[in-house]
Design a protein around this nucleic acid. Structure first.
Lengths: 249, 249
DNA sequence: CTTGAATCAAACGTTACGTGCTGTTTTATA
DNA sequence: TATAAAACAGCACGTAACGTTTGATTCAAG
């Protein structure tokens, strides 16, 4: 027999919580003393552990009460539904993460927040039909889409890109044939190859997609001006010969 | 100038929500009519869109109020912190998903819920030091650990395992050299190769880990009896010669 | 000027408890 | 066994972000 305080210490839940569970009828004491103090037995300890487990797994107290009352028929249903709910939450959280990353890197590039971008991201996720898919489908095969979507840059790589794009933005006025423009284009190529390898066809498709949609929010922060700058520097590079890149079909 | 109803229709948020935002001072009308009806201007529309975006990104109304008041100094900090929070949530949700999956499959195998397993999973996650890591370290290299942790079975594959383990449990009495035992062992091998390939060293390490820890909850539902059954069937297979598997060192 | 629609203010409900508060019961010590 | 200290019961308010309801007031159209 445990008093409410002993049970609290044994299981690590607060007295108030046990109080609350008693109040809503989720976990009631086996008996009480003459004075009205609550006493819990082993059965209640086991039930409490069940409750805590189900709570950890994300069930509401309401749901817990329901499924602990039922004679054990629909465990599979309950857990199946819960798994689906959790999967949906996970998907949503991954979208959040992606959005936050994009915005964060943009802040680092532009030194201030870009509300147009933020609003754009919102729209991207509020449209039911996945706009990203639609656009990518115009330029790439299924495998290529997989490849571009599965890229996840780590902090270090992203920092390199942020720095590069920052420098490009500072030098947009530079002539395509200038040394600085050529060096920036070299670094761009280096970064692209590092991310996607040297698959020329894939790179061309990706480049086309970026070129056509770079005013939108999808490929942020590769904006039109940045893409144009690199594009022209690349053309010069080709004319001078020797470089394999073949942007623009 | 929008009345509260027009603004509601324009932006899709309910009147009550705008009411609430006014109440807590998050979004207040530009002016009011003589009768006390609220009027919102374009500035307020923009601010509302900011609010909705930040809310979508997971900020609390409190935080939103703070960061919209500040003169724009610490956007980077705010989004950085938010990203970290979201990443923690994601990690937690992935643990949930894994737990739910394990329990769900176990329900399907045992036709009822196994509370010892559930409690075991709780303990596994409540211990601060990751017990999984400790155990795997005893048997496997870093790369091998990566390999075994990165396995994610889809519904179909899991169903095959569930079925196989169910059949094994039904036939635990069968002699290791019986035809049925041998066939089950064959299917086991087939499944393992499908998941991890034929890397013999890796399979041996994994088999050792499972053998030593199969009374715990880690490799559920590969319990001791199931593992022993397969183990003995394998030994027979070896004696009869020809099969490459070399379980037990 | 009269409707009917829109709006306002206020209050209570939601989840899963935390944080007090007062008054009573139990336990430990003298 | 008396008394102090600890534990306990029970109540009530607070949290976040609104939903829901009610009744009174104001606006816009005819």
């Amino acid at each position: 027999m445990y008093t409410i305080g002993k049970l609290s210490k044994k299981t690590g839940v607060t007295v108030r919580t046990l109080d609350y569970y008693d109040e809503i009828g989720l976990l009631q004491p086996q008996s009480t003393t003459e004075g009205g103090h609550r006493l819990y037995g082993e059965v209640e300890v086991f039930r409490l552990e069940q409750i805590l487990s189900l709570k950890f797994l994300g069930f509401s107290l309401d749901k817990i009460q329901c499924i602990l009352q039922e004679p054990s028929n629909s465990w599979e249903d309950a857990f199946g539904e819960q798994l689906i709910m959790v999967q949906e939450q996970k998907k949503h959280i991954e979208e959040l993460e992606q959005s936050l990353r994009t915005i964060l890197y943009t802040i680092q590039i532009e030194k201030e927040i870009n509300w147009e971008l933020v609003f754009g991201i919102m729209q991207l996720f509020q449209k039911k039909n996945n706009k990203i898919d639609t656009i990518l489908n115009q330029y790439m095969s299924e495998e290529e889409k997989e490849k571009i979507l599965s890229v996840n840059m780590d902090e270090d790589k992203m920092e390199i890109w942020v720095e590069l794009i920052n420098e490009i933005k500072e030098n947009l006025h530079a002539a395509p044939e200038s040394e600085i423009a050529q060096k920036l284009a070299d670094r761009w190529i280096e970064g692209v190859v590092d991310m996607f390898g040297e698959d020329k066809e894939f790179l061309d498709h990706a480049w086309n997609a970026i070129n056509e949609e770079s005013d939108g929010v999808m490929f942020y922060p590769m904006t039109k001006d940045v893409v144009n700058f690199i594009n022209e520097a690349m053309l010069i590079k080709e004319k001078r010969g020797g470089i394999k890149s073949e942007t623009r079909s």
